[in-house]
Structure formats: C-alpha cells, structure tokens
Lab assay of single mutants.
Amino acid sequence: SFNTVDEWLEAIKMGQYKESFANAGFTSFDVVSQMMMEDILRVGVTLAGHQKKILNSIQVMRAQMN
C-alpha cells in the first residue's frame, strides 16, 4: 500500500500525472478512490492505455479499502 497519491502514481508508472492530480484536488486516497472516467479525463489523462491503467488501479484500491 502507498502513503501518498504521488507514490501510488509512481508505482503504477503514471508519475507524469502527479501535478495534474494535485492541481485538480485529487490528493488523498479517499478522493482518488471515488474517481470515475470523467475525473480521469478532467485531470488530463487522454491516452486510453493510461486511463485503463489508472482506472484498474483505482478499482483495486477500492477493493482494498472495504
């Protein structure tokens, strides 16, 4: 498990989005775990492969939080 959203993004090789997530207010796992595709688009993730990777990881995160 990760301590910060930045660490999580690095771990899934999506570190290039750290600033975008932070600027959009997605700075805690409570918020990130609620993200939908529209949120991912809003933070500027436009590549389908990256969207899928982030969404898949969020689903895993949700499962671990319950």
Rank of each mutant, 00 (worst) to 15 (best):
Q34C: 09
Y17H: 04
M36C: 12
L55M: 14
W8V: 00
N66L: 05
T27W: 06
F26Y: 15
Q16I: 10
S57K: 05
L9T: 00
V5H: 01
A63T: 13
I12N: 04
K18V: 07
N3A: 15
S28L: 04
Q64G: 10
K53M: 14
N56T: 12
D30E: 14
L55C: 09
A24C: 09
M35P: 00
A11T: 10
Q59V: 10
Q51K: 05
G44C: 03
S33M: 14
S33R: 09
G25I: 02
Q34M: 12
E38R: 09
F29G: 02
M61L: 14
Y17W: 04
V5D: 01
G25H: 05
F21T: 02
D39C: 03
I12Y: 03
I54F: 05
R42E: 08
I40R: 00
I12W: 02
Q16T: 06
E38P: 10
D30A: 14
K52S: 11
L47F: 09
T4S: 13
N56R: 13
N23L: 13
L47Q: 14
H50N: 04
S1F: 14
D30S: 10
Y17C: 02
E7Y: 05
R62M: 09
S28W: 04
K53G: 05
D6A: 11
M37A: 10
V43I: 13
S20N: 15
L47H: 14
R62L: 14
L55T: 04
D6Q: 07
T27V: 11
F21E: 00
R42S: 10
S57T: 04
V60D: 12
I58R: 00
Y17V: 02
Q16E: 11
K13G: 15
D39Q: 05
L41V: 14
R42H: 10
Q59L: 14
G15W: 05
Q64P: 04
Q34W: 06
M65T: 06
G15F: 05
L41Y: 08
E7W: 04
T27E: 05
L9Y: 04
E38N: 08
E19M: 11
A63K: 13
T46N: 10
N23A: 13
T4N: 11
M35C: 03
I54Y: 00
V43D: 02
V60Q: 15
Q59S: 11
V60F: 11
M14A: 03
E7D: 14
F21L: 03
W8P: 00
L41T: 09
M37F: 11
F21P: 01
M37R: 09
L55K: 04
G44I: 02
S33D: 04
K52T: 12
K18P: 01
L47P: 07
A11L: 08
N3C: 11
H50M: 04
M65D: 07
A11C: 11
E10I: 10
R62W: 06
G15R: 05
V31D: 09
N23H: 11
F29W: 08
E7T: 07
D6G: 13
S57V: 04
G44R: 03
M61C: 06
A63C: 15
G25L: 04
A48Q: 10
V5N: 00
E7F: 05
L41A: 10
V45G: 01
D6I: 05
A48H: 12
T46K: 13
I12H: 04
L41I: 15
E7N: 07
R62Y: 07
I58M: 03
V43C: 13
E7R: 06
T27M: 07
V43P: 01
Q51W: 05
F2N: 05
A63F: 07
N66Y: 02
I40H: 00
S20G: 14
T4W: 08
S1R: 09
L9C: 02
E19F: 07
T46D: 07
A11F: 13
E10K: 07
N3K: 13
I40C: 05
A11K: 09
M61N: 05
I40P: 01
S20F: 06
A63S: 14
L9S: 01
A24I: 04
K52P: 01
S1Q: 14
V32K: 00
A24P: 01
